[in-house]
């Protein structure tokens, strides 16, 4: 986006230095109008996009999903990397994610991680550290709570 504009600017330099720069240097070359059109499209596009979200449904409550990505051995720990996804237009701050290793009804080990911010329609990643090997137990990961920013 920025690159394109720079190209246009350079073009403007060549076009503008040609026939009719006025005494104060403010010449109206076609290149300037082309740049103006591009600028108008960018600004109108952004405003239109945000405006569209302003009138469409706004959710008050973030809808958070957690999925485990992979388990990696790191030093003395097993790290379960997870991904949290927000499917709503509300932001969750200080999102607490917990993971439990279960053997039947018994919770063998519990671990927590906190995600600073989970913005609308975004994803963030984190890791839960366990002493025991998660592969040997049933792993339950879930979001526990958040604060509103």
């Amino acid at each position: 986006m920025a690159g394109n504009e720079r190209e246009t600017e350079k073009g403007g330099a060549e076009g503008g230095s040609g026939p009719a720069p006025s005494s104060n240097g403010i010449a109206e070359s076609p290149w300037e109008w082309a740049t103006a059109a591009l600028g108008a499209v960018i600004v109108a596009g952004l405003l239109g996009y945000v405006g569209h979200h302003a009138v469409s449904d706004r959710s008050e409550v973030p809808s958070v999903a957690v999925e485990a990505a992979e388990t990696v051995r790191a030093g003395d720990s097993h790290v379960v990397r997870f991904r949290v996804l927000n499917g709503s237009s509300a932001t969750a701050a200080a999102l607490l994610v917990s993971g439990e290793l279960r053997d039947g009804q018994i919770v063998v080990e519990r671990s927590e991680a906190r995600i600073d911010y989970l913005p609308p329609f975004s994803e963030r990643e984190g890791g839960l550290l366990f002493r025991a090997d998660p592969g040997a137990y049933e792993l339950v990961i879930r979001p526990e709570g958040y604060s509103e920013p």
């Binding site: 920025a2 103006a36 591009l38 600028g39 108008a40 600004v43 609308p120 329609f121 975004s122 990643e125």
Partner: peptide, 29 residues
């Protein structure tokens, strides 16, 4: 003004991208 603001938006986005603020983040945000 309009071209200037478009340039400003491009720079603003570029800075956010450089500082990793756009990673994994929805377009609306």
């Amino acid at each position: 003004t309009v071209v200037g603001y478009a340039l400003v938006l491009a720079i603003s986005w570029y800075l956010l991208w450089t500082f990793g603020r756009t990673d994994g983040t929805g377009y609306e945000e």
